[in-house]
Design a protein around this nucleic acid. Structure first.
Lengths: 240, 240
DNA sequence: AGGCTCCTGACGGATTCTGTCAGGAGCTGT
DNA sequence: ACAGCTCCTGACAGAATCCGTCAGGAGCCT
């Protein structure tokens, strides 16, 4: 019995038992020592399996490891398809793969009668005539930093061509038709700033968390900065 | 990279590609030799995965593997969020509700650690400065007709202001930054035509199915009409 | 026919795995 | 407080597995 098979069987065993199972019982079922069971459980947890072990009790598998079957209406599938299609054309490599993985997972989870929609999609979001600006950095790094509330050091070249080095606290990434923009608190200016990702020549994430909650920065930005953007947009385009 | 992890990644890679994938491509993606890919494929098959390999072609994953896909990754949730956000701002009422329902269903399924992303989303698709053209008809009716391959009668007013009544066979709805466009076969002209939804003054769907498969119309359109659009876009915008 | 591709076998070095032993710490019921 | 159960970790050494390389066979497509 290869280890990879055993891990699957272990997962099945945990799924089967709603009530806590002891490592001993699992060891007996899988015909290995308890030590190996602990190692295997550790491997599952390393794979983000939500298995909780409590001393004196045993193991229970929580929800949220695999994707349960999902029921969507046709409208909902269309909404997802349009969005993923649009996103895919503006995505960094890992986000692009993510769009494809979502489709694949949906295909595996949707009821059969909805599955054909994924193949000959009734809706699309085409890019004809749009010059989507390409990035030179890996935007995936920025997304990761935002998710984890990490500082990022960037080399930026603004609209006038002036270069600068800054450390920013990124809290949101805005996807526009042609460009992506990082919203961040700028340590250099001590102000909110935004940075077009295509003008970032270099980005580095040393893994330092910034001392503020992402949601707080987002809310503060919406209160203080957003109105300015809206006003400026209104001035450019009065009937918008 | 442990083997058990790799097997899951291999499975997901097979799910992602609906066209045949070669062992070489899989080896590149998983960063192992092709020999190992063959071994891993054999392992999957040993686990009853319906993966078919044909010489000269590649591998395809058949339907009906009982191992459910893994939960969405953070990247995948971001891809969905960006897309839904963009779609919501351009959606007819029922599609708009659909975007919200998808979010709710997603929230019900996501594990705790990913759920905050739905609230303080790290990504957005804003509409500042974009004048999204509103429709006077219910685009939901068009979407429904496309899904069911039904004829639609429309009153159209073209770019020059000339009005006309037509019956069309709609097969696809294209979402652009500002407008939506129905792609259809036009009974009046006996040609492929496209219609901006905001220029459709009235639309009616008597419930008559058109005598052609949607996928066939789509494919034919892609072969015959799509190149024209691309060429026209290229002429307008040479560096696109 | 030629080019891809799947597929299998063998081999050896590197890596991983596994059981045993020992011990720490938390939970539960008495 | 205590005993009993359980999760959990570390070390170690022999066993097993894994993996890349090489070689070759067979099927599919143009």
């Amino acid at each position: 019995m290869a280890r990879s098979d055993r891990l699957l069987r272990l997962l099945q065993a945990l799924r089967r038992h709603r009530h806590p199972v002891t490592a001993d019982a699992l060891a007996a079922e899988l015909e290995v020592s308890t030590r190996t069971v602990y190692r295997d459980i550790a491997a599952l947890i390393g794979n983000n399996a939500p298995v909780r072990g409590e001393a004196g009790v045993g193991y229970v598998l929580g929800a949220g490891y695999d994707l349960p079957p999902m029921m969507f209406t046709a409208d909902e599938v269309e909404a997802i398809l349009i969005g993923l299609n649009w996103t895919r054309n503006r995505a960094d490599p890992s986000l692009r793969r993510a769009t494809e993985d979502v489709l694949a997972k949906l295909g595996a989870v949707l009821p059969k009668e909805l599955r054909p929609m994924l193949l000959d999609s009734p809706v699309i979001a085409p890019v004809v005539g749009v010059d989507i600006v390409q990035d030179s950095i890996d935007v995936g790094l920025l997304r990761g930093a935002i998710r984890r509330s990490l500082k990022v050091s960037i080399s930026y070249r603004d609209g006038q061509g002036a270069a600068s080095e800054r450390t920013i606290w990124p809290f949101r990434l805005a996807y526009f038709e042609m460009v992506r923009v990082v919203l961040a608190w700028c340590e250099l200016r001590q102000e909110f700033r935004h940075f077009r990702t295509d003008r970032i020549a270099h980005a580095e994430c040393p893994g330092v968390r910034y001392p503020e909650q992402r949601a707080v920065l987002q809310r503060r930005w919406e209160e203080r900065e957003m109105p300015k953007y809206l006003a400026r947009a209104k001035a450019r385009n009065p009937d918008g």
